[in-house]
Structures are given as C-alpha cells and as structure tokens.
C-alpha cells in the first residue's frame, strides 16, 4: 500500500511540477532579486530570421525557438531592468535560464530557472553565474578564460556561456520591442 502511494506521489508530482510553473518561478526569481516594490510586464517577442541568423552565426549556437520571453521591470514608473528567459541544450535536456540586464544592457544577474539533468548542475550555482555580472554585448565570453569551465559540466557550462552571450547580443533588439 505504501509503495503504491509513493509511486502515485512521484508520478503525480513529477508531471505537475513540470507543467506551467516556469513563468511563476521566473517572476518569483525576479522579485527575490529586486524585492516586491516593482511592476512586471511580460512580453513574448518574436525573433526575426535576420536577427536569429546573425546572432546564431556569431555565437555558433541556435536559438531554442523563434520567440523569447521578456519582463520589463519598473521601479516607480521608471524602467530600470529587463529580464530575459531562454533555453539552451545541456547534454541531453534543455536548461531554462534567466538573465537580468540593466537599461544599458549590462548583466546584473543570471540564474537557472529549471535544470533537468543529473550531471552538470554546477551551472546553477551562484558563484559560477556571478561571473557574468558586468558583461554586455561587447564583452568577451570565453569559457576557460574569463568564465571558468566546470568539472563534470563541460557541455552545460559551454552551452550556458553561449546562451547568455546570445541574449546579451539580442538585448537592444528586445529593448526596442517592449
């Protein structure tokens, strides 16, 4: 009987936890960073083929889809930051991550919203993600140089580094659209 309950709990919670929570979790992450004294506006931005191809060629990594979610963050009627949500592929599963930019496109925070694999979880750690703070679309994102690679997470760390750089290059395009 107990085994049945455990199996049911695992099956149930696995599917429930994976469905429809990304958006809520993202907004919670943003509010944890800024506090509750902000207004959030969510946008779904389509990426033109031209901008996708240009950035993909520059970074040598494809976009996960042809649109992207952006939150405009307002403090007292002034837009101070933008949060961008995207996916990159880890070794076998997508990694959903969030990058927060100030109004000039400089990264002020990044975090992993959902990680789906056993290995490579080092990319979730704040001490690794904090290396991107202060970078922008003109910066170098060089894994093994200004960004440390992670033992046991070579593919995930490479993928995340390229993914965050992609969003940095995309920032001005997104800012114009929201």
């Amino acid at each position: 009987m107990n085994i049945k309950k455990i199996i049911f709990f695992l099956v149930m919670s696995s599917f429930l936890s994976s469905a429809g929570e990304i958006s809520d979790r993202t907004e919670l992450t943003i509010k944890e960073y800024f506090g509750s004294d902000i207004n959030l506006s969510k946008y779904k931005i389509s990426l033109s083929q031209e901008i996708r191809v240009t950035i993909q060629n520059e970074c040598r990594q494809k976009f996960f889809s042809d649109y992207i979610y952006v939150w405009k963050i307002d403090h007292k009627d002034h837009t101070t930051h933008y949060a961008v949500l995207d996916n990159v592929m880890g070794k076998t599963q997508p990694i959903t991550f969030l990058v927060i930019f100030d109004s000039r496109g400089m990264i002020t925070n990044s975090s992993v919203v959902k990680y789906r694999e056993q290995h490579g979880g080092g990319v979730k750690e704040a001490h690794w993600l904090d290396q991107f703070i202060g970078l922008n679309g003109l910066s170098e994102f060089e894994l093994g140089k200004n960004i440390d690679s992670i033992s046991g997470a070579t593919i995930s760390s490479r993928s995340m580094t390229l993914g965050i750089r992609k969003l940095s290059l995309l920032f001005n395009y997104l800012k114009e659209k929201v």
Partner: peptide, 14 residues
C-alpha cells in the same frame, strides 16, 4: 492531467 498540461510545458521543452 498530463495530457491537458503538456501544452503548458511545450514552449520551453521539446
């Protein structure tokens, strides 16, 4: 539930 909620996770998973 899985069938009805799959749409919800499609956008960030394939």
């Amino acid at each position: 539930l899985v069938n009805t909620q799959t749409f919800g996770q499609d956008e960030l998973f394939s």
